[in-house]
């Protein structure tokens, strides 16, 4: 198992390297970060532009810039991913990309984690129930809910959920649902417990928005794979051994039925990271989604690249977790 994990880790490194090349090239070729400066009226002097170019390393060749961006060797000390430097922001010296990014991650990771856990948990539950009561009313209801959730785009569904929350608050005259931000404004003078409750409260509606699509897709997969396993020969043999049905489902069916879900859910993580941009915009969170949109607006090349690398890393990490889960769930993979 250790060797297996180590081998998976080793594979992740070239994947990330390839991703960095792609990210760099795509962002670099997509436009000139100094176009605003050049268009200014009256036109800035040659020196100013040259200074800006030097500041953002635009005077170097493409391979040189990539090398700088990765290692920081030969730079001004503000660049080099491997040194923990994300590069200078066009939004001025006060804007530290690394600092802003880590603040955003802290906000967003809560939402993403909550959404993944909720989506997985509910998907497994509804998939198993649907499979065990195939063609029952419950199965049809869950199927209907699933397709409904799949059919609705996140930006519309999110707005709807937010409106629903507001309407509930208005009719009941309470502030039961939080619809704006990741935390309340007066967060600085809260105790730890209060802070936790406040965070959790703010999570509710965005989590529902973010997880619904994934939940719907995953529960369909879980239902199918569960059905397949329930009709398998080894489940029949387990019953023939005299193992009670409840235990058979838990011990023999569920574990093998989870294996295909791991694959699907891993791919789904990408979708969740995409969805977080929309969700954060709707609920006005200052997380990674907000960070990305602001960076694009400002044509902040290094910020965009940093964000892309970070999401790339998250996807690779999700795959790694999936591979390890595979190994845990399925001994056939572990031994290959």
């Amino acid at each position: 198992m250790l060797v297996y994990t180590a081998r998976r880790l080793a594979v992740a490194i070239p994947v990330l390297l390839a991703a960095s090349v792609l990210v760099f090239l795509m962002v670099d070729l997509s436009g000139d970060p100094l176009s605003d400066l050049r268009m200014q009226q009256p036109p800035p002097s040659e020196e100013v532009i040259a200074a800006a170019e030097a500041r953002y390393y635009l005077d170097r060749s493409i391979p040189e810039r990539y090398w700088l961006w990765m290692t920081g060797i030969g730079g001004n000390g503000d660049i080099g991913l491997l040194q923990g430097q994300f590069g200078p922001s066009v939004r001025g010296g006060a804007f530290d990309i690394g600092e802003e990014l880590s603040d955003s991650i802290y906000v967003t990771i809560r939402l993403v984690t909550a959404a993944i856990i909720a989506a997985l948990g509910l998907a497994v539950l509804s998939g198993v129930v649907s499979a065990m009561r195939q063609y029952s009313k419950l199965d049809y209801t869950l199927t209907f809910i699933g397709f409904l959730a799949l059919a609705m785009p996140t930006f519309w569904l999110g707005a709807l959920i937010k409106e629903g929350g507001l309407w509930f608050n208005q009719t009941t005259g309470t502030g039961f649902f939080f619809t704006i931000g990741a935390n309340s404004a007066r967060v600085s003078n809260m105790t730890g417990w209060e802070y936790f409750l406040d965070s959790a409260g703010h999570l509710v509606l965005p989590t529902i928005t973010l997880m619904l699509t994934s939940f719907a897709a995953w529960s369909r997969y879980q239902r199918t794979s569960m059905l397949e396993v329930l009709n398998s020969d080894y489940v029949r043999l387990a019953r023939a051994k005299g193992v009670p049905n409840r235990v058979v489902v838990r011990r023999h069916a569920l574990r093998t039925a989870l294996i295909p879900l791991v694959t699907v859910a891993t791919i789904g993580v990408v979708g969740i990271i995409e969805g977080v941009v929309i969700t954060e915009t709707i609920f006005q969170w200052r997380g990674l989604g907000y960070f990305f949109i602001e960076a694009v607006k400002a044509q902040d090349a290094f910020a965009i690249m940093s964000w892309l690398m970070l999401s790339g890393t998250l996807v690779v990490l999700a795959n790694l977790v999936a591979d390890i889960l595979y190994g845990v769930l399925d001994p056939r993979i572990r031994y290959e």
């Binding site: 029949r236 043999l237 023939a240 009670p244």
Partner: peptide, 29 residues
């Protein structure tokens, strides 16, 4: 019912199936 027949199955009456390649759960020893 399931609970009652589970006491008989595998204890008093056991069964062997056709395909040995699919009769055993791949994830347990």
């Amino acid at each position: 019912n399931d609970a009652q027949i589970s006491k008989v199955r595998g204890d008093k009456i056991a069964m062997i199936f056709q395909d040995p390649l699919t009769s055993l759960n791949p994830v347990y020893t």
